[in-house]
Design a binder for these strands. Structure first.
Lengths: 136, 136
DNA sequence: GTCATTGCAAATGCTTTGCAGTGCC
DNA sequence: GGCACTGCAAAGCATTTGCAATGAC
């Protein structure tokens, strides 16, 4: 976490209170907040932080590869701080809860050459969907 | 296609000019239009068709399982008429073009029991991302 | 002191909704 | 002829943008 702030400073980031708070909110395992949820939690610590600042900061973190953008459905994007450990997502089709999961094998390897159509493929994301125990 | 209209009528659908036109626009292979693109193409055949009607019709087709909703990025949803043949998507990270692809094995089978956390999993979607030949 | 960063408010893009009128069955 | 369906316009989210004020370096 403070590693994160350190890394960002090395990239020439100005370390403002707002950015620190956004980074703090995203700290933790299995965190998959929407921009609005990040903003709500950030406001608790720094009441004057603007929604636009949260959006800006999140986009920067995504661009720097420190946070992943997850669009599970057509609704608001979610932000996943677990960017340095490869994983996939398990989503509840009722309540929308997301869990990080680790499938067997490399998803990228499941697409044969004949199905690549000249694309230079760099990434494969898998989304598993089902009803979670709470919603059953 | 006319199969489709037939099936829909059997489900109690009123067969209006608007719905027919939307179904026609979605007819074909490798079609992944946004609602707006469907509307634009529908207007060519039926000038007075409203955007809201296109949205309504698309939602109904999705609910009936005749069309798949695809959200590859945080932008507009895309609609995929190829709902009856299991497939996955290959997306160009530059231009956003989508291709239907067929991976080896069953994606659902890649998640071990120990990683299912009590979810009743019913679906797994894989999105491969890379740069397409046109964008290279 | 400079210039990146912020806050605010307005604008944008996509989608949904309310409601009176239309036309399929 | 009833009521599902449509068109239109307005409302609703999620997100982006413009710009003057601020504060990290």
């Amino acid at each position: 976490m403070s590693d994160l702030l350190e890394r960002l400073r090395e990239q020439g980031w100005r370390l403002t209170a707002q950015r620190r708070v956004v980074a703090e909110v995203l700290n933790g395992q299995h965190v998959h907040y929407t921009a609005d949820e990040v903003h709500a939690r950030a406001v608790e610590r720094l009441p004057e932080i603007a929604r636009a600042t949260v959006y800006n900061t999140l986009s920067e973190l995504v661009a720097l590869g420190e946070v992943l953008e997850v669009s599970t459905d057509g609704r608001a994007k979610r932000y996943d701080p677990n960017a340095h450990h490869s994983h996939q997502h398990l989503v509840c089709s009722r309540c929308g809860t997301i869990r990080d999961v680790h499938p067997l094998g490399d998803p990228l390897a499941t697409l044969p050459e004949s199905e690549r159509f000249g694309f230079a493929i760099s990434e494969a994301t898998v989304t598993y969907r089902g009803v979670c125990p709470n919603c059953t």
